[in-house]
């Protein structure tokens, strides 16, 4: 078993904080209903975080919902309920600051999620208008829409790219996930995944595997396998009743972190081969191939829904979270089993 140790509480946002993301170098950025983007930096000497810049201006007319850093850390895409996605450039140096460089228009209503592909060549956006858009990122912040993808029958809540290839997964209020791939410049839906029975709020990849969470309170682990020579996502594990009133967010870096409307953060670990021998009957009958155990549960991580969790790309076992209580928090996962040796 393990536990989460609170490292820092970052105050400043007014109202719900909807998203928190790490830059490739370990800066922390957050956004929410106050239409302000805040950038935080760890001060290693004091092991505390300080605000290094806040950007609001008149760029955002409504709630800022989601964030994605380009892999080079220079661009930050922001999804806004005003039906736009805005790209901010982050100027480095001693006094970092954000400057808006391009506003992507085209969606009919709230943009709910943004995601850069791992190469940085593509940006995906999705909206209340049921569509997913793919933008090609050119030199000098030139963005061209190369595909408008229809298929979902309701709001598209989240988009996530496969980390190694140009494969996109979108999740929706229609309870499904869709897999989008390209063939000869044409983007199309290669699979519809319907294992959830409620809105699918979040999707996170690790390698070729992904995890999804839903208002049906469950988390599902998916593996991609060849079925009749065609790569297909299959349910490898499912954890039911993980978050009362709905699971809202998920992130995966060896360990899976999830947050929900029960104000909790859960950390899940895959049971190893040796432990795997003691398979439950349920698992044998349902063809699930792996088991995931909740190794830590922080009961009251926030005083309100936990809207996002994100593992740090540069530090081991460091997790950021944000919630309806207006706070951003940084946690360290401590594995008590390892400590005991």
């Amino acid at each position: 078993m393990g536990r989460l140790e609170l490292q820092a509480t970052l105050r400043g946002h007014v109202g719900t904080v909807w998203a928190v993301e790490w830059s490739p170098t370990g800066l922390l950025v957050s956004c929410g209903t106050d239409k302000t983007i805040r950038l935080w930096k760890l001060n290693p000497r004091e092991s505390s975080y300080q605000l290094i810049t806040a950007f609001s201006g008149n760029a955002f007319l409504r709630t800022t919902r989601d964030l994605s850093f380009s892999p080079d850390g220079r661009s930050l895409a922001v999804a806004c309920f005003d039906a736009t996605a805005t790209v901010l450039e982050l100027f480095g140096g001693k006094n970092p600051r954000f400057d808006p460089v391009v506003c992507l228009e085209g969606h009919d209503s709230e943009v709910k999620s943004v995601a850069y592909s791992s190469s940085g060549a593509l940006l995906a956006t999705c909206s209340r208008d049921r569509s997913v858009w793919i933008w090609e990122v050119g030199l000098d912040f030139e963005y061209n829409c190369i595909a408008v993808l229809h298929g979902h029958s309701a709001d598209v809540k989240h988009v996530a790219w496969h980390p190694e290839c140009e494969l996109l997964v979108s999740s929706s209020y229609d309870d499904t996930m869709r897999v989008w791939v390209e063939d000869a410049d044409d983007w199309f839906c290669s699979e519809v995944l319907s294992a959830h029975t409620g809105t699918v709020w979040g999707v996170a990849f690790e390698g070729a595997a992904m995890a999804s969470v839903s208002s049906d309170e469950s988390l599902i682990v998916w593996r991609r396998e060849l079925v009749r020579n065609y790569p297909t996502f299959r349910v490898a594990a499912r954890v039911d009743h993980l978050h009362d009133n709905g699971a809202l967010c998920v992130h995966w870096k060896t360990l899976i972190a999830s947050g929900g409307a029960d104000d909790c953060i859960c950390i899940l670990r895959k049971r190893n081969e040796r432990e795997q021998n003691t398979q439950s009957n349920e698992q044998i009958t349902s063809n699930l191939t792996e088991s995931w155990d909740v190794v830590a549960r922080e009961q009251r991580a926030h005083t309100g829904d936990v809207n996002r969790v994100a593992w740090s790309p540069v530090h081991d076992n460091i997790l950021a979270s944000c919630g309806d209580d207006g706070l951003v928090r940084v946690w360290r996962y401590v594995d008590d089993d390892i400590q005991r040796g």
Partner: peptide, 11 residues
């Protein structure tokens, strides 16, 4: 019950 739709509606 969809917190995101509700908060968007209030804007």
């Amino acid at each position: 019950g969809d917190k995101e739709r509700v908060s968007a509606a209030f804007e």
